[in-house]
């Protein structure tokens, strides 16, 4: 027998409990929906286009140079021979997320929203 642990509490969500829809079902539904959207993004090639757009915009605004400077600091701390990909990812990724300009985020969000509304069936 498989036991499914729900992240939601039934007391906190009385509407769901009353309607007979369990929290696990909604989670599965959302996960499946997200998976289908990701599949559509990949199939249509929109994901690659968005990646290229993001990369171009980030390079244009100087994000890449800032990130390389951060990487240099990490390499100097850890040592040239001892630095690993994990070290770089752990140190650099949070800063990278924070350094993405709002204008770039807005532009990409608009593109993503347009895609979602276009493929709404």
């Amino acid at each position: 027998m498989v036991v499914v642990f729900s992240l939601f509490d039934a007391d906190r969500l009385p509407n769901l409990a009353r309607s007979g829809i369990s929290p696990t079902n909604t989670m599965n539904k959302e996960a499946r929906l997200k998976a289908s959207i990701n599949q559509k993004l990949t199939e249509t090639g929109e994901r690659d286009r968005l990646k290229e757009l993001l990369r171009a915009k980030l390079t244009e605004c100087g994000w890449k140079d800032q990130m390389k400077a951060q990487c240099k600091d990490v390499i100097k701390q850890k040592g040239l021979e001892h630095v690993t990909v994990e070290d770089l990812v752990v140190e650099v990724t949070p800063k990278g997320r924070a350094l993405v300009p709002d204008s770039v985020k807005k532009e990409l969000l608009q593109r993503i929203r347009a895609f979602l509304t276009q493929h709404a069936s």
Binding site: L33, R47, K51, R55, C71, V92, G96, R97, L108, L116
Partner: peptide, 19 residues
Amino acid sequence: MAQDILSDLVEDACLGLCF
């Protein structure tokens, strides 16, 4: 959902740069 997709894309960009 749009925010999730965006965060995935940013994550990809960061990982690509790290590699």
